Simulated scan of single mutants.
Amino acid sequence: MTQDAAFEDGGEKPLNLGALDADDLGVISALVQDAVFPVTEMTWNAKQRRFALLLNRFRWEDLPKAERRGRKPERVQSVLVMENVMRVASSGVDRADKDIILSLLALEFEAGEDGTGALIVTLAGDGAIRLDVEALEVTLKDVTRPYLAPSGQAPRHPE
């Protein structure tokens, strides 16, 4: 008799995920919830139609293991890339203040016609970034080794 593999059986490997539909995006959204990044780490390359964020992502996927082992939670630097971006607009984001740190709450896709739509990046403090896309294509890739979360605890949200 064989047993299914459990999440805990996996090695400590960096994430490298892609999303081509709203269901996939929901997984990435959960993994980037509470990621923080300086406003200076947002880049839009209009010619390549690519928008990217360099995030300090909270490792939600590691939290149960950390708690079981009495280890403090971790963060990791990750690159979040959105492809096929035709237009970018933001609200509540002061790009002139180079010292501002933004906190990502969620990613959502508002479908349009024939695969087009808007990718909404919701930020804490009523900020948002709207990316009009020709097609949904998002990647999340960890680019550093995990490090202890400076706060030593998991983010909390008031209910």
Rank of each mutant, 00 (worst) to 15 (best):
R59P: 03
L53D: 03
K65I: 10
V121D: 00
R57T: 15
S103L: 10
S103E: 15
L63Q: 10
F109D: 03
V93H: 03
V121K: 02
R57I: 14
L55A: 11
L53A: 06
W60P: 12
D62S: 09
M82T: 09
L53S: 00
K72H: 07
A66W: 01
A89M: 14
R75Y: 02
L119S: 08
L105G: 05
E67T: 15
V93E: 01
N45P: 05
L119A: 13
T122E: 11
P73W: 06
S90W: 14
N56P: 01
R50F: 03
I100D: 00
N45C: 04
S103H: 10
M82W: 00
T116G: 13
D94Y: 07
K65A: 15
P73H: 11
M82S: 07
N45R: 07
M86A: 14
F51C: 02
Q48M: 06
E108N: 15
L105T: 06
V76G: 03
A89D: 08
S103P: 01
G115D: 07
V85K: 05
E61T: 08
S91Y: 10
R57D: 09
F51N: 02
L63M: 05
L102T: 07
R71M: 12
P64L: 05
D94N: 15
G115V: 15
P73S: 07
I100S: 13
K47D: 10
D114E: 14
S90C: 12
E74A: 13
R69K: 15
T122L: 13
L55S: 04
R87V: 15
R75K: 13
